[in-house]
Design a protein around this nucleic acid. Structure first.
Lengths: 207, 207
DNA sequence: CTCCAAATACAACTACAGTTGCATTACCCT
DNA sequence: AGGGTAATGCAACTGTAGTTGTATTTGGAG
């Protein structure tokens, strides 16, 4: 999960100017994504905006994809926890609505969209994205765990499959087919998955 | 759906050398994608491989994204029809397995993956991708229509939502999180959606 | 406080993607 | 068949992304 741009392990200088530079660059990356989108983000822009010389940016991050991958590593280090509404369908609906909100406004969608775009360009960004979602979905599995405890879902339900089934149709429309997504669609998706869970369609024995 | 690379409407020269050039270039694009992947595909490679001068490629297609968008337009002009196995779950399972097959081998996945990647880079490719999937999913809706006729699905079922719900989790894992997808996963996804359909979770009244 | 190593700044350079003006070729129409 | 026009080929050019070698600055350790 550690960014490749980090000083090599065991370095003597973890803080100070290096840390300031990194933060300034990360800030410039997010600003640039919001303003020009991923295709318009250039190393030169980040260098100018952050006040860090472009040589330094190239040496530590290597490319635009490296910059985005580093920003993605940072995004994974938050304290987000899945919703807890007291019912399976309520939790799934809240999860789906969060996706809808993220991709509802262009400014909020800029960074997540860029993360996916960068993953198509470089293996490092792809790995960072994979790690991000692995960790994020692992957090979400508590939703299913609680549902099992409430007898809303059969024991052994494949929690990972459930949380992916709720998110995927919305991600797919937002990122691949560019169809509009809204709250009713999120609710429909959550309801459908909740029905399937209760029916035992996500028991891993079926795989 | 007409490619931007086409001669302007009403042109006097729809066939002949122009058509040969276009086919040679399209072929080179697909070969290049399979060999080097999207990030490694360059206009210069396509020019050399196709025997068409790079100036011509730049003039007619404009960029790598234009080349990919044109190839995508071509891909949409096929005679593919959705499976007809005689049951809803069978049809959904067959659809899901097709997705699995597409992204199962690196060579088969190269073009579809590139289409999505290009859509993040240029609006023209994004529009071509949107058109492709809109048309493709419209064809798939016959699966749901037949299920309604067989009383396997309630009348008024949102066919578009159903076919997207079957495909999306597989696309999402293949393209975004880069998780492995296999036949059991396809079957699980299809079974879950079939259960939800039968329970009436995809009635558009819920939106 | 001073010294040392790491990180950054600077400037010049390289390479290649993409452009432009013009010559040439090939196709369609009469 | 042959003339006109669209499309392609060609070669030289431009701009900029990315590189390299070196000087300078910074921050921590003793």
């Amino acid at each position: 999960m550690t960014a490749q741009g980090d000083p090599t392990p065991g370095t003597v200088r973890p803080g100070g100017r290096t840390a300031r530079t990194r933060l300034a660059v990360r800030d410039a990356v997010l600003t640039g994504l919001a303003e020009h989108g991923y295709p318009g983000l250039t190393v030169e822009y980040v260098a100018e905006r952050s006040g860090v010389h472009k040589t330094t940016v190239y040496r530590r991050w290597g490319s635009v994809e490296g910059l985005v991958a580093d920003a993605l590593d940072l995004a994974g280090e938050d304290t987000w926890t899945p919703p807890d509404t007291g019912s399976l369908e309520g939790d799934l609906r809240a999860l789906a609505r969060e996706v809808t909100e993220t991709f509802g406004s262009a400014s909020a969608a800029a960074a997540p969209t860029a993360f996916v775009a960068a993953a198509f360009q470089s293996d490092r960004a792809a790995e960072a994205l994979r790690a991000f979602y692995t960790e994020r979905f692992a957090r979400c599995e508590s939703v299913v765990r609680r549902a099992v405890e409430r007898d809303e879902a059969p024991p052994g339900t494949d929690a990972g499959a459930v949380v992916r089934a709720v998110s995927a149709p919305l991600f797919f429309r937002a990122l691949v087919t560019r169809e509009p997504i809204d709250v009713p669609l999120a609710d429909q998706t959550a309801a459908a998955v909740a029905v399937a869970v209760r029916a035992g369609a996500y028991l891993p024995a079926r795989r």
